[in-house]
Each structure stands twice: as structure tokens, then as C-alpha cells.
Write a protein that binds this DNA or RNA. Sequence first.
DNA 1: ATGGTAGTAGTACTA
Length: 260
Amino acid sequence: MKIATWNINGVKARIENLLAWLEQSSPDIACLQEIKSIDEAFPREPIEALGYNVETHGQKGFNGVALVSKLPFDEVNRGLPGDDQDEQARFIEGVVSLDGKVLRVVSLYLPNGNPVDSEKFPYKLSWMDRLENWAGERLELEEAFVLAGDYNVIPMPEDCKNPAAWEGDALYKPESRSAFRRLINLGLTETIRSVSDAPELYTFWDYQGGAWQKNNGIRIDHLLLSPEAANLLNGAGIEKHVRAWEKPSDHVPVYANLNA
DNA sequence: ATGGTAGTAGTACTA
């Protein structure tokens, strides 16, 4: 069971890349972020033609997340609970059945939070508080779940090429990193660091400044596993080669293999 | 260098 997450930065601009990746990588479940599309305009047909079920939580212009799965969804929930005023489409949860057991998979797009002196930074931190509350409740179920997506958090200095350049940025602020640690410390396993301590593992390279050519990257796309899911973990990786494709997203796919 | 690039939607915004 391969579960992947990929911020595709616009599903309409990236549909050819997305279809090529689905065929080549063949994830059982893929979590997509920044689809930048309303549900009605999401190009679901060519994805369904590859044998996938498609569930979207879109909005006009920005944000938007989706789940595509070879397994049918028993249940789908849209939106992160905890703030009825929050209109931004950043969270979708799907439930599938695996050998009679429940597997929950979330595709999330955590707020960027810049600039930090605007209302966007407290929005990010309150969103992370809501996510911590949600994860705490789900953990009580003692089921396998995967919280995957673009967290917009650089967890540690070694998760970026040039830490000094990120001082003061919302992706690297102590408050953001501390909230990410609190989430982990509920009992979740961060997939990539649980399988590798290699340097220069990045998932995002900015379009600007030749970041890709200089390997000036950051690691901000993560899969967090509940204990029941972490017990099934059998390999993980970052599909870095996708960043070198024509018309690439600025993010690349990250995946976990589960024994299931 | 108060820039740079990209997507969406149609000129400003978000990242």
C-alpha cells in the first residue's frame, strides 16, 4: 500500500504531469494540495480513467485539496473542525477499508503564515492548534491513519539548505516548529526521518533564483503516521526526479509504503 | 536587486 502526498500547484496547469506520475508511481492513495480549482472544474475524468476514485475539496483560485484512491472511500469529510468562520479549503479526510480494518488518510494544506506581522501568522498557528486537537481525538480511536500534506513547516535546520535565510520566516519560526513538534509528540511518526537521517532531503525548490539548480530546497511536505500505521511502515521516499520534468510543480511527491 | 517566478483568473492575490 503506497500512500503519497504532492502539492501540485494548480491541477489544470499540472494535469499532464499528474497523469504521468500516477501511471509511473502508481500510488494506491494520493493526497494532493493546491489544486487551485473549484470542485466542478477539477479534471476528474482522466484520473478516473486510470482506475482512481476522486474526492475534492476545492475553492476558487487558491488552496484546495483532493484525495485520489484505487480503493473506494467508505466516508469523506471536508474541512478541519474548530472554526466555523474558516472558509479556506485546506483539509479532506477519506476512510477506506483494508482487510476489514479502517485506514484514514488526510490531505492537508497547512497555511503558509507569511508575512509574520500580518493576520496570516496567527491564522497558521490557530490552524495548527485545531489540527493538534483533531489528531488527539483521532488517536483515541486507535486506528491506522496517515496525516499527509504540505505542512509549510521546516522541522529542523538540516531540513533546509540555508537555515540563516529562513530566520524569521513563518515556515521556520520557533512557534511553527514547536507546534509541529507538539503534533508529533502526541504519538505520531514522521515518515521520512524515521527511515533516513540523510542530509539534503528536500521536497520543495522555489521557482525563483535558480533554487532547483543550486539544490536550495526545503523539506516541508510530510506524512505523519498514527502508531497503528507506523507499525506497518515498510519504506518511504521522496520522488525528487519529478522536479526536473517539464513545467514542474515547485514541490515533489513524498510517499510511504505500508504493509497492508 | 524593495527584485526574482508561477498559477488563477482576468489585475491583484498568494506563495
